[in-house]
Write a protein that binds this DNA or RNA. Sequence first.
DNA 1: CGCATTAGGTTAATATGTTAACTATATTAA
DNA 2: TTAATATAGTTAACATATTAACCTAATGCG
Lengths: 169, 169
Amino acid sequence: MIGDTAQNVNGNVNGNCVAGDAVSTHRRHLALELLATRERFMQHFRPVLTKHDVTEQQWRVIRALAANGGMEPGEITKRCVILKPSLTGILSRMEELGWIKRQAHADDLRRSVVRLTVSGNTLHRKIGREVEATHTNIVNSLGEHEFAALHAALDRFNAGLDRLGSPPS
Amino acid sequence: MIGDTAQNVNGNVNGNCVAGDAVSTHRRHLALELLATRERFMQHFRPVLTKHDVTEQQWRVIRALAANGGMEPGEITKRCVILKPSLTGILSRMEELGWIKRQAHADDLRRSVVRLTVSGNTLHRKIGREVEATHTNIVNSLGEHEFAALHAALDRFNAGLDRLGSPPS
DNA sequence: CGCATTAGGTTAATATGTTAACTATATTAA
DNA sequence: TTAATATAGTTAACATATTAACCTAATGCG
């Protein structure tokens, strides 16, 4: 990835705007940049997860359960940013792997409560150590300020989205 | 979504840290927050795309092609943050829909060049107008500063990742 | 030239994302 | 109490994500 200027067939370089574009093609695309940044960041952690045969989503669920101790699927979907139909399969597989268990809710027969098993907790500690170590390395390399600044910018942006309200679903 | 404090079965609230957690469960998770923020932001645009039966990924490709006029698949994967195996199917479907065409590369028989068709360009202008309008609404509501600040924070963070180099693949 | 290596894309298998429809249970109100 | 409605999860169908293996064409080099 060194020296590939990514010049396309038209002779344009790096997506610079060309005259005559009807719709704005030159502004920055926040959603794409959030995606790209997350992707670059995650690349540092993916080897750790892959090594332990855990998917990103499974790791998110494990971390949420380790932090909260017992959650209903509905809670998990919100905290882990996973849609309900996806979570159904994710939990099924995690249950088969013996990492979690589901128990029925006493009052409401629709609901259930998900918990980490002992081996699930063990897995969390094992992977967690490596993830934290990797994270610490990156923080030390980039500086805590960069992280704090990005978190702060995200907070302010989210606060703005809060004020804006929900989109017309 | 008003007044749901998300209290879990253990009585903990909002994922606050519990005593005795072996691995750090209280720090902020940047990757998750980038994902969540992007998701919340995208919710405002999803209705527009859905209305025109275009997926997020297809829209990214359309926008990239509209801005660059002709790209090789390899370029598209980088700009749109789509892996090669995924792009294969995405381009096939877009070709069937008549939005793009592929032509062979003169020199290198492995490569190909992807371009928007006339109807692909029409679709881009149509959706683009609505997307830009939505975007303008959000910017006006949140203030340009919030966007600029987040973009700047992302830039600085990415610069830090640049200095860090590629992860051990 | 002949061969090993590299690069651009595709295929395959499995997991997840996304929307809509559906089941079972709860809740609400007439 | 009953009928309408709402809620928690699942199922179904298709699109995309992810990794590994594969295929073909191009490159580098002896």
